[in-house]
């Protein structure tokens, strides 16, 4: 009994320690965003003077450098659209390759692996010119396409998950006369919540993270069109960093908020998915 108690205490201490390490940079981000000094503070962890000025500047007094509300709106729209498209694509490909058998299945899967091997940014310039031909540069739809069009290639994790869905369930549905589409929609999808959550999260995040593609496609230099990533990255320019570093941090914090909310909401589904899994098991 005593040993068990020690075990539990140690376990929580370890977790607390790990969480501490994982959170240090995040806390630094948070406290720096409240700093009154606008450059990089290299001497102390906590700012010497606290202030809300960074948030105020970022949210209410947009200048040509910091147009955060616009960026946020742009990125949010792009993220939502590409999230819907990519999640759908990933699940569609995963279902087709996991639950169905057809002639081109293996060749297609091998092709997908091969294509994942190429360093993507080398072909960036070709993607750019394709978009320009379609008149989609400096256009948020162009960005959505870039983030979601090829997302089917990332189907492997979802396929791995669907592989664990018992065949017997689908067979029962076949016997009831359900079509493939119906099975996909009302048998397999409801059981795949964890992987849907995972797919949604990862495809929602991409537009918030990417600045290389985004900068290339939104190349007209109109800063109100930018996404958060380009805008924030731009604040670290040599001539701007000393005035905007703390606003950069504040921007980072603000970006994390919707993503955190997404995670918190998704965690609820997560647990439901888990119970669903145990029922079916």
């Amino acid at each position: 009994m005593n040993k068990r108690f020690v075990n539990i205490v140690l376990r929580h201490l370890l977790l607390a320690f790990l969480a501490f390490i994982w959170l240090i940079p995040i806390v630094w981000l948070l406290v720096t965003s409240f700093s009154a000094y606008t450059g990089i503070n290299t001497s102390t962890f906590f700012p010497q003077e606290w202030s809300l000025q960074n948030y105020k500047n970022l949210l209410f007094s947009a200048d040509s450098v910091a147009q955060f509300p616009n960026w946020f709106k742009n990125t949010f729209i792009v993220a939502c659209c590409s999230c819907v498209i990519s999640s759908a694509f990933v699940l569609m490909v995963a279902y087709a390759t996991s639950c169905m058998r057809f002639k081109m299945r293996k060749p297609l899967m091998n092709m997908a692996v091969i294509m994942n091997l190429f360093p993507g940014f080398l072909s960036m310039i070709a993607v750019y010119f394709i978009l320009r031909t379609l008149n989609l540069t400096n256009n948020h739809w162009g960005l959505v396409l870039v983030y979601s069009a090829s997302s089917g290639l990332g189907y492997l994790i979802a396929k791995g998950f669907l592989d664990t869905v018992p065949v017997s369930l689908r067979e029962a549905a076949y016997l009831d006369g359900a079509s493939e589409a119906k099975i996909f929609w009302s048998v397999v999808l409801p059981m795949s919540q964890p992987i849907i959550v995972y797919t949604v999260i990862s495809s929602f995040l991409a537009p918030w993270m990417d600045f290389i593609f985004a900068k290339m496609i939104l190349n007209a230099g109109v800063s109100s069109q930018w996404t958060v990533a380009i805008g924030l990255f731009n604040m670290l320019d040599r001539s701007l960093i000393n005035t905007y570093f703390t606003q950069f941090c504040a921007g980072g914090v603000l970006v994390s908020i919707p993503i955190s909310v997404l995670f918190v909401i998704m965690q609820k589904f997560y647990v439901e998915g888990v119970t669903g899994g145990s029922v079916k098991g």
């Binding site: 600045f211 924030l232 941090c249 993503i259 995670f263």
Partner: peptide
């Protein structure tokens, strides 16, 4: 949740 917070901050920021 504590660990997931670190994902919520975009990679390039962190």
């Amino acid at each position: 949740t504590l660990f997931i917070i670190t994902i919520a901050v975009p990679q390039f920021v962190s």
